[in-house]
Design a protein around this nucleic acid. Structure first.
Length: 261
DNA sequence: AGTACCACCTGACGGC
DNA sequence: TGCCGTCAGGTGGTAC
């Protein structure tokens, strides 16, 4: 699930449910998701403290505490955030549970355990250290064009490159290119500023709309192709059978009629 | 240097 | 029904 819109939804959920509450305990259910810290270390870092703010860069979420500790949370392919009260059942696949003094709890859920949670110095240091590009919702048009133009390789791979811009993943890349009318396997070298600029505009629109719809495909506009991925979907614009190819061993769906440019 | 691909995990689903 | 193979929206490391 978690690309930029999903992570933004998680961040807002975390913000609504998990700030300004004293952390009473941290229960680590899956040690594997911890990176650079241990269960007891994480507990020592957070117990008695409280989360006060959240940030996001691309698909990474950050939570900062009153004492100045920061957590970096990455969701892998199957992560999410859930909130529950004492006495309610802990969500399935909870990897780390933050238990608050007010009787509520927040779970970092990771089914496939491809996500990671770590203690970091600051979001800026972390972002720099990993070479993350600007957030896809913050990047300016000129910067977008500059960083993409001249790249060798295919356009879908390029807009998913987190060092160029952070936040676009496999399915939203497909949606953006569908809205722009560009084949995902088109070579970036064959594209001019004008075409890149169109992709930029569609990217913003798609990501904002997805956030507005809480990243839930069943609520997406009829004009979106995302709900058609998977078996035998048809193009929402022209009705043609959606085509399935692999790009860098990732599933890609597009309309062979509308995306022929 | 820049791209492309596999490994990492577990669960869900389609086909036989 | 049940088993098995395949695939899944993530990234890091490695091999060209």
């Amino acid at each position: 699930m978690p690309e930029l819109p999903d992570v933004e939804v998680f961040r807002r959920r975390f913000g609504r449910t998990s700030l300004h509450r004293k952390i009473e305990a941290v229960r680590v259910r899956k040690k594997r998701v911890l990176k650079g810290t241990s269960a007891s270390g994480l507990g020592r870092s957070l117990k008695g403290d409280s989360f006060e703010k959240t940030e996001r860069r691309g698909k990474h979420m950050f939570a900062g505490t009153k004492k100045g500790t920061w957590l970096a949370i990455h969701f892998g392919m199957t992560g999410t955030v859930a909130h529950f009260k004492d006495g309610e059942e802990e969500p399935e696949y909870s990897a780390v549970v933050f238990c608050f003094r007010d009787g509520t709890n927040t779970s970092y859920i990771s089914k496939r355990m491809l996500g990671r949670l770590r203690v970091i110095g600051s979001p800026d240091d972390f972002i720099r250290g990993r070479g993350l590009g600007p957030d896809a919702l913050d990047i300016g048009k000129k910067e977008f064009i500059r960083s993409l133009s001249g790249k060798s390789g295919r356009v879908k791979t390029a807009i998913m490159d987190q060092s160029l811009l952070a936040g676009v993943g496999n399915i939203y890349a497909d949606e953006i290119l569908f809205q722009a009318g560009v084949r995902p396997d088109k070579s970036v070298k064959k594209m001019g500023d004008r075409e890149l600029g169109r992709i930029y505009g569609k990217m913003k629109r798609v990501l904002k709309k997805a956030i507005e719809k809480k990243a839930r495909p069943e609520r997406f506009p009829k004009s979106f192709i995302i709900p058609e991925r998977g078996k035998r979907g048809s193009c929402p614009r022209c009705g043609a059978r959606v085509k399935h190819i692999r790009i860098s061993s990732r599933a890609s769906y597009f309309c062979p009629e509308c995306q022929s440019k």
